[in-house]
Design a protein around this nucleic acid. Structure first.
Lengths: 169, 169
DNA sequence: GCATGAATGTTTAAGCTTGAAATACTTTCG
DNA sequence: CGAAAGTATTTCAAGCTTAAACATTCATGC
């Protein structure tokens, strides 16, 4: 488990890992900030709302609240608030589930679906711009390196089908 | 500018960029969630507090509020609240600046400095563990690829000295 | 001096986020 | 049946985050 071995390069590797993590974090924050601002200015919405709509757009029949929060890897209570606001805006609706009065199914309205497709198109273009300094080869290479990282849930080797995130279709 | 050229592979590159971004985002969120939980359980603190203390630890003479928020790339008002709580906890103190009654200088107390060094040591170890699946060479390679990305402020070619983030010393 | 604008911080309103507690419903099984 | 355990969701308290409004203080130029 990556014990503090007595090899002389332990220190260096650890520092390199730290450096990589800090870069990763800076880059992600910068891109996120950019996307957040554009979503606000051009669509008067937020990144969390966009993420929720993206998840719902991949499931035309809707998702239960708990499925949604698992997909987005955020807490249960968090989704409640975001969905409530999306419902107010008319982009999402809640539908009772037959035979289980505890659960509800949430899905995009027709208007929500249309709105999401507008946003997703812009979003893809923005991301393409932000990463434009990477060549196709570099992008591909980086994608492969990321496969080695703890991207998916770590200590759970039994996830049914992680499903591709975002609006990738 | 990455204009929508008429080359047949525009679509593919764009999709690859999007895929990379989503992976980046997933990875960052997962690592952040892990670090956040550990900071909470083992040190009863939060990631934002840790980030602020890391910035202050690199500046023993303290920083003005506005310098601090620039370093952390968060809004001005945000820092006010975090610093207030750190002051309550006794890790940070505010000191008036001679000759300018608008500004204050904030810096770690002796206790804060000591506490931060405990946390930083654990933090470096956690990150090393989380990235342990990357070889030294892969880590180095990835670090280089990141240099091509919009890590630093994009449209400002005149930043004085970005300074290394985190507790890297 | 003194008006005017810039700089520095705080406050505020709205929303996001978590973890824990509360609520409501369903299933299990004695 | 009925208690206990489990499931699905909301509510809650605390804290983070932003953008915008606000209050002070400083600097500049008449």
């Amino acid at each position: 488990m990556s014990e503090q071995a007595t090899t002389p390069n332990r220190h260096l590797t650890s520092k390199e890992h730290l450096r990589l993590w800090l870069r990763l974090l800076r880059t992600t924050r910068r891109v996120e900030a950019d996307l957040r601002e554009r979503l606000r200015l051009q669509f008067n919405t937020t990144l969390p709302r966009f993420d929720v709509m993206a998840a719902l757009s991949r499931h035309p029949d809707g998702l239960k609240m708990n499925e949604l929060s698992q997909q987005l890897k955020v807490s249960n209570g968090n989704v409640t608030g975001i969905i409530s606001r999306l419902v107010e805006d008319g982009w999402v609706e809640r539908i009772a589930i037959e035979g289980d009065r505890r659960a509800t199914r949430v899905l995009l309205t027709a208007a929500g679906n249309q709105q999401f497709h507008h946003m997703a198109q812009a979003h893809e273009h923005w991301v393409d711009e932000l990463f434009s300094s990477l060549s196709g080869q570099e992008t591909h290479h980086m994608n492969e390196l990321f496969a080695h990282l703890p991207t998916e849930a770590g200590p759970e080797p039994d996830s049914p089908a992680p499903d591709n995130q975002g609006e990738l279709r």
